[in-house]
Amino acid sequence: MKLYFSTKNIPQLQHLPLTQRLAAMQLAQGKLIGPEKLFLNVLKMLVVIPVFIFIIQIATNWMAIFWALLVTLLYPVLVKPVQYALCAKYIPQPHANSQGDP
């Protein structure tokens, strides 16, 4: 599985503007099969749950807020590339229009 850190890096979407890339990703995400959705949701939970644990610890340890912020910043670094990689296979290849086509 090749990881993509931006939708610009996905070969099928490189020629599209941002709004169309996001729309294509939304459609591809709807095509994910059950195990892929489960894997993505478990990964999201593995990132989100520690944030809440650190927030609870703020009452006794004020440094926990920094750890919560750090883990929150890691969310797009860990989850988005996996999400893009899973969705990339459901994005159709662009059709090359030849000059003879009407």
Rank of each mutant, 00 (worst) to 15 (best):
Q12Y: 06
H15N: 10
L16S: 01
P17L: 01
K89V: 09
G30E: 08
S6R: 04
L32Q: 05
P76R: 06
V42K: 12
H95D: 07
F66L: 15
A59N: 11
A64R: 01
S6A: 13
V48Q: 05
Y75N: 03
L3R: 10
M25D: 02
V48A: 14
F39D: 07
A88H: 02
V42Q: 15
A64F: 05
F5V: 03
L13R: 03
A59L: 14
A88G: 09
L69Y: 08
V48E: 08
G30Q: 10
Q26L: 04
M63Q: 12
S6P: 03
I33V: 15
Q29H: 09
N97T: 12
Q83E: 15
L32T: 06
N97D: 08
L13H: 02
L27G: 00
E36C: 10
S6V: 05
M1F: 11
P94N: 07
V77D: 01
L32S: 05
A59F: 15
P50W: 09
K8W: 04
L38R: 13
K80H: 05
L73A: 14
Y90R: 10
L13I: 06
A28R: 00
W62G: 01
I33K: 15
G34D: 14
N9V: 00
F54H: 10
Y4D: 02
V51K: 07
V77M: 14
M25H: 03
L18P: 00
M63Y: 11
N61W: 12
P76A: 08
I91H: 01
W62M: 04
V48L: 15
N9F: 05
K80M: 12
A59M: 09
S98T: 12
F39K: 11
I53F: 14
L73T: 02
F5P: 00
I53P: 00
K89E: 11
I56C: 10
V47G: 00
V47E: 05
L13G: 03
Q26W: 01
N9Q: 15
T72N: 07
M63N: 05
P92N: 11
A85M: 06
F66S: 10
G100T: 13
Q99H: 13
T60P: 00
V79L: 11
I91P: 00
V48Y: 09
H95I: 15
Q83Y: 14
I53A: 14
L43C: 07
L13F: 07
Q57A: 14
Q29N: 07
W67E: 03
M25L: 15
P92Q: 07
Y90D: 07
P35E: 10
M63T: 08
A23L: 08
A96T: 15
V71S: 05
A68W: 08
K80V: 11
A28G: 03
N41V: 03
C87E: 07
T60G: 14
I56S: 07
V47T: 10
V77E: 09
I10A: 01
K89C: 08
P17G: 01
A23P: 00
V47M: 15
I10G: 01
M25Y: 02
I33W: 11
L27N: 04
P11L: 04
W67H: 09
Q12G: 04
V42N: 06
P76E: 10
T72C: 14
K44E: 13
Q93R: 13
I10N: 01
V42S: 08
W62L: 11
V47L: 15
P76T: 07
Y84C: 02
F54K: 08
L18G: 00
A64Q: 04
K80F: 09
A23D: 13
L38P: 00
P17H: 03
